[in-house]
Structures are given as C-alpha cells and as structure tokens.
Amino acid sequence: MRLPMEAIAQTQAGVLSAGAELLGDMAETPWGQRIAQVTELIPRLVPGTCGATTTVWDGTAESPTTATHPDLADLVTVQLRAAEGPIPTAVGTRAPVRADDLLTDERWPRYRASALGTGIRASATLPFHRAGVTVTVTVYRLRPGGLEHAAQGPSALLGKLLTDTVARDRRYRRALATVDQLDAALHSRAVIDQACGIVMHVLGCDTDTAFGVLRRISQHTNRKLADLARAVVDSRGQDLPAG
C-alpha cells in the first residue's frame, strides 16, 4: 500500500530512524534479510514507484542483490552480466543515473528491452560509496518520468544509511578478525616459550639454542612451529623428536 503524498512529506523526517530500526543490530538478523527489509521500505516512501532493488559490493566475491519483485531482480542480473545499464553506469561514473522513458531512451539496449518487457518505463539508480563499499539503490516506475527528485528523496537517505551501515559492519568484522589473529599469535607465542623452557631443561641449553632446536625440527618435519611446541608441552618433552 502506497502512503499518501502528505504522509510521505511527514514521513521523510523519520526515514533515517525507520531505516536504522530495520537495520538494527546485524548480529541478530542475517545481513540479507536486513537489506531486504530496507529495500521493501523504499517504494513505500517514494510515490509513484512500483518497486526497488539494492546491490552491495563490499570486496567479497559476491554482490548480493535484493529486489521487491523477481522481475526486478532479473533486471539487475541482465545489467551485471552485460556490464550495461543504469547500475554499471552509476557505479562507473559515481553519479545518479535516470532513465525517464525507456521507450525512447536507447543508451542500454539489453536493459531497455528487458525493462520494457516487464512493463518498466522509467528508473533512477543512485550510487553510494564509503570505505571500499559500494551500494546502488534503484527505483522503478510503470510510467515515464516522475523521478526527477529521486537523488534527494527517501531512497537517497536510505541508500546512504545502508552504505554507512555496511561499511561500519565491514570495519567491525575486520577488527574482530585482527583481534582473533593477535590472540592466536599471543597464545602461540606463550606455547612456544613454554616449549623452549622444556627443551632448555632437557638439553641443558640457553633460550636461543632451544628455539633453534624447535625451529630446526619444525622445518625438518614440515610442522608448524606452534603445533610442534604444543606437542612438546603436552608430552613434557618426553616425545621430543630428534633434530
């Protein structure tokens, strides 16, 4: 159900809060579902539109796309496969791209044919970029025109919010990965130090010699130094391989 024009004007002030509430804590709901919820909200806030799609590029192999209708998802697929259409153009130019009437707009033959085949006459694609993340939001109409202010409306606000959220989540996940790597490195270092102490006791040598023994055995047996050290600690040096 479309919101009336006066309600749209009143709602725009709450678009960001509504979008933020939908996105919420991404640990609670799968990412794809959050993006789909925002996508579903867009045409409700943009009068005269029949649907919307969002596509996210965040450096991973896949570019997840959500659409309010399967036919619109197919339009995105056509563009990405052919590298032709409003979405590739918007990503390449980093500027909004409008097709006011696909009946006369001949810039993208494949996209145009597919869109007209599903009854789409007009579309507007808005690109957003932040910290290695690119998001496109596209709104569609069954009639020509009517998207002159798309770049300043609710779709733009929600697109920016979505991009900021993806970028923030990406940084957060990278930080967690770094913490895990540091934790693993510190744990490995502690185990290696324990193993060196055991080798020093068994061989009656100093720290540098003990570490050299472990490293030499690691290379000769093709085992990671941390794994070898853990085995030495677990066996208290009784199963220390010959180096």
Rank of each mutant, 00 (worst) to 15 (best):
R98T: 07
A113I: 10
L240M: 13
V191C: 03
P64M: 11
M1W: 00
I192Y: 10
Q152Y: 04
A195E: 07
V213D: 05
T60R: 11
E21P: 12
Q10F: 04
A115F: 00
V38I: 03
A231C: 04
T93N: 09
A99K: 11
V166G: 04
Q10E: 10
L102K: 01
D239P: 05
A67C: 10
D193W: 06
A229T: 11
C50P: 03
G132P: 06
T165Q: 14
V135H: 01
G243L: 15
V179S: 13
R189Q: 01
R112K: 13
A231V: 04
D180C: 05
P86S: 15
D71G: 00
A83N: 12
H69I: 03
E21K: 07
Y111G: 11
A167S: 08
D208E: 09
G237I: 10
T53H: 07
S235W: 06
T89Y: 14
T209L: 15
A99I: 14
P47D: 13
V135Q: 00
R98F: 01
R141I: 03
I192L: 09
D227H: 06
R44M: 07
Q194Y: 08
A184I: 01
D169W: 06
R2D: 15
P30F: 00
V213P: 06
G117L: 12
A150Q: 10
D183N: 07
P154M: 03
M5C: 08
T11H: 03
G212K: 13
I217F: 02
I35A: 13
R215M: 14
A122F: 01
L116Q: 03
L157C: 08
L176D: 02
Y172I: 04
A113L: 10
G237V: 06
I217Y: 07
T11S: 03
F128D: 07
K224V: 14
T65M: 05
P144I: 05
Y172C: 06
I87D: 14
R223T: 14
E148Y: 07
V233E: 07
A83Y: 09
A231F: 03
E148I: 07
V135C: 01
R173T: 00
E148W: 08
V179A: 11
E148P: 01
V97N: 08
D25Y: 11
P88M: 02
V202H: 14
D183T: 09
G237N: 13
D58T: 13
A156Y: 02
V97H: 06
R230K: 02
W108H: 13
V133T: 06
F211L: 15
D206E: 08
V166T: 05
D105F: 01
T53Y: 10
V76I: 02
E28A: 15
Y140S: 02
I35G: 09
L228C: 06
L116M: 09
A122C: 03
